[in-house]
Simulated scan of single mutants.
Amino acid sequence: MTYEVRGVVARGKGEPVSVETILVPEPGPGEAVVDVKACGVCHTDLHYREGGIGADYPYLLGHEAAGVVSAVGPGVTDVAPGDYVILNWRAVCGQCRACRRGRPWYCFDTANATQRMTLADGTELSPALGIGAFAEKTLVAAGQCTKVDPAAPPQVAGLLGCGVMAGLGAALNTGHVSRGDTVAVIGCGGVGAAAVLGASLAGASKVVAVDVDERKLVWAKEFGATDTVLASSVDVIETVKELTGGFGADVVIDAVGRPETYKQAFYARDLAGTVVLVGVPTPEMTLEMPLLHFFERGGALKSSWYGDCLPSRDFPLLIDLFLQGRLPLDAFVTETIALDQVEAAFARMHHGDVLRSVVLL
């Protein structure tokens, strides 16, 4: 049986997205079909539309999602029809060199569905991050489904599928922020705000939020920032140092991913401090800095892939914290929208008007 559903498609670089008929095949071995209940509008989807990630058009966009498994293929035992799941783009293989060394959050051979979803005319679609969840149903590898408590609303649970998990994990898993640390977060959109929240949860003594948009700094304060820096009006590096005793922060998280913000992060950290890059650069960006400065300052320079999360470990834990009232995931949801409003949501996101728009299906 082939399922006929509606989905949001990017047909070409820079073209407005459209809602089109999508054909979803029955799940094959190791695959699952998920009825999508909610999917966040993430900047990565805009990167796909703009050609910043690849040129395998047409793309079926959407990846930050929660839903209910409706069918599974042969050999699938970890999930079953009726399971409430968050979709993830790191389906751990358990066999690659990272997994065998006990570091599955770095899995180098994550799985996607083998079959392809198509347009009505048979044109194969490239699902964003191997998920494609701006659709009423999607086909994924069963390992991309992580079971969580169904008491969490899908518009909240789905946020862990990408942006919020990336930010939380950048602070908690990659930056290893610990009690008493000083932290600066450059860029306080959805990912950066989550990094602020993660640093606050970890017990950082000071969390400095940096952005060019005063609205985002207000949001950052709500997520635990102790200080804010309006980057358009001051020297970011010197201001962060002033706010951290003249030394710089122990951990600086770049949630923008541009050469200028990375340089700010590098020089705004204390000696032997840590820089975490979680913002996603585009392919043409380059960085030129004196190599001696890397040697002189020491410390650690890290890139955070998906917040270095392990979905099977982190998603259920974070959902439990939300249900206990200890993790305000719902505060990230600015608005809920329909499938045909994704293009308008991209514009609002680009202008910084929202933390997260979430499609409800």
Rank of each mutant, 00 (worst) to 15 (best):
L317G: 01
L339W: 03
G203Q: 11
H43F: 10
K263N: 08
Y3H: 12
V359D: 09
D320I: 03
C39M: 13
V191Y: 04
A38T: 06
P29E: 14
V9K: 09
W219Y: 11
A225R: 12
C107K: 12
D353G: 11
T334W: 04
P153L: 14
M1H: 10
D121F: 00
I337Y: 06
W219P: 07
D181L: 02
E335Q: 14
L168S: 07
V359G: 05
R348C: 09
V76K: 03
G14T: 07
G245T: 04
A300C: 10
L159F: 02
Y48S: 06
A193Q: 13
A344N: 11
T226W: 08
L159M: 14
E50L: 15
A170K: 11
G82D: 05
K137H: 10
L23N: 04
I253M: 10
A65V: 08
T174M: 12
L201D: 01
C39N: 11
A202N: 08
G102E: 07
L310V: 02
P29H: 06
V210G: 08
A268V: 06
S70G: 09
Y106C: 12
G132R: 02
G132P: 01
E222V: 03
S312G: 13
E242Q: 15
H293P: 01
A113N: 06
V85R: 02
L197F: 06
V333H: 07
G307W: 05
G307A: 10
R90S: 09
V280Q: 14
D270N: 12
V177P: 02
A195N: 07
P153G: 10
R6K: 15
P27A: 14
A209Q: 09
